[in-house]
Write a protein that binds this DNA or RNA. Sequence first.
DNA 1: CCGACCCGTTCGCTGTTCAGAAACAGAATG
DNA 2: CATTCTGTTTCTGAACAGCGAACGGGTCGG
Lengths: 262, 262
Amino acid sequence: MDWKSGGTDPESEGATIKSIDTSFAVVTALRDRNGAGVTELAEATDLSKSSVHKHLRSLMKHDVVVKEREEYRLGLRYLELGAHVRAQVPGATEIKHKLRELATETGESAQFAVEERGQAVVLFREVSHGGVYSRGREGRRFYMHQTAAGKAILSQYPDQWVREVLDRHGLPKATDHTVDDEEALFAELDEIREAGVAFNSEESTAGLRSVGVPVTDADGDVLGAFAVAGPIHRFEGARFETELPNVVRSVVNELELNLAYS
Amino acid sequence: MDWKSGGTDPESEGATIKSIDTSFAVVTALRDRNGAGVTELAEATDLSKSSVHKHLRSLMKHDVVVKEREEYRLGLRYLELGAHVRAQVPGATEIKHKLRELATETGESAQFAVEERGQAVVLFREVSHGGVYSRGREGRRFYMHQTAAGKAILSQYPDQWVREVLDRHGLPKATDHTVDDEEALFAELDEIREAGVAFNSEESTAGLRSVGVPVTDADGDVLGAFAVAGPIHRFEGARFETELPNVVRSVVNELELNLAYS
DNA sequence: CCGACCCGTTCGCTGTTCAGAAACAGAATG
DNA sequence: CATTCTGTTTCTGAACAGCGAACGGGTCGG
């Protein structure tokens, strides 16, 4: 029942601190409408104005909320924390470097994603001229089975881990092309393992395709995955099936060598 | 007594929610040692193990803390929130674009900073080949008077606002070169206003110089400031005093034009 | 092989304190 | 000028955060 041989099943939630839950409710409401007043937030969260107010004051104390022009909005402290956790990832600098190389070399948007709690999280992202595909801003979470990077990562996991991911999140469909059959997914993971490349053809977003390759460290443990994504009209034929996979693979190869010697 | 004609004086802290304070204490302790156990955190925060545990569980529920390999560390949810607040800044895309242009054009590290709660916060950062100056990761906060970007921003503020910043934070010294005299600062802000450029010569870090230029929107309100920074041996003579200022100014000019038409 | 120890976790209890209702102040609206 | 929005403060009771102690599992050392 353990997750990666350590950790508690997150579904079995014991007692949590209610104030924290409500604080996050306020923060979430604030994020969704970025910038709001006390009354609006009170309605959105089903709390009393006084409670919201007190929470906002507490959050302000820690710079995660600021008041500007008579309205509250999220502060930049989150940026500091976000940058911090990202910097802790081993090889962050090299990864970012190689990612940019990949983006300029292909002329497409590229991203590096890692797995957390059974989902794929975009850690770095490089957009190239043409590709203003807003999908996949840094920090965004995806289902593993809906993206090329996610499947690339899964392909390096033992079946047991993959199954735990499925137990936790299932195989929700985002488009008609999303794999929603467990058998089919495992078969695809086999192919990915053999080819060293994962494909995503409109499985998360209509019109969007991507190519992903897992990144492993010197011990063979998977760190995450690189992926390039773009519109279907540029991702087809030999470019989609051969050229881009080769480019991504070779960039990842170089990265892995760099990571081994550092 | 108001801050920017709206807002409460942050010094006058009313009653805050204690649970939130302790949660932040846990998060901070976790950040400072990135990755720790319950007992260690309990000692660091002067709380009981059970309290720390309950807080951790609550924080895990919201993905800001994750348990991995029998130890707790900060999760990637902060990355999402950080990326979100940054994306809300008007013209974020254009700013990032121009910032990269500035970095490649000068071959130095460049950054875009905004003011929040009287401090300068680095929003975007571009490092060039040579400049692995780790100073100024995204989200990092600086005193306004200790950086070129901060002084550039202050130069566009009415005296009243500047004085409010000083009231709140004072003029703490970071090095021997830091301006710690109010008169001198205002005189320097005058010069900056005239020249359109702010300089920082080892005022925050020994051996580090930088050149900053304020960025204003179509209404003339200051959005933030661009700055290039580098080692003193590359930042001297005509390059420091004339060339770099001209490059930064022209890049900012182009940016302001782009922002006006969007 | 076994005992001592350290860790994370759980369980009740108690005093603290968070949440809500209502009143207050101030600005904008008509 | 009255009304009706804001955001803010006050106060009180019921909820709950925090602690100590006990539990269970793992590892270390003898």
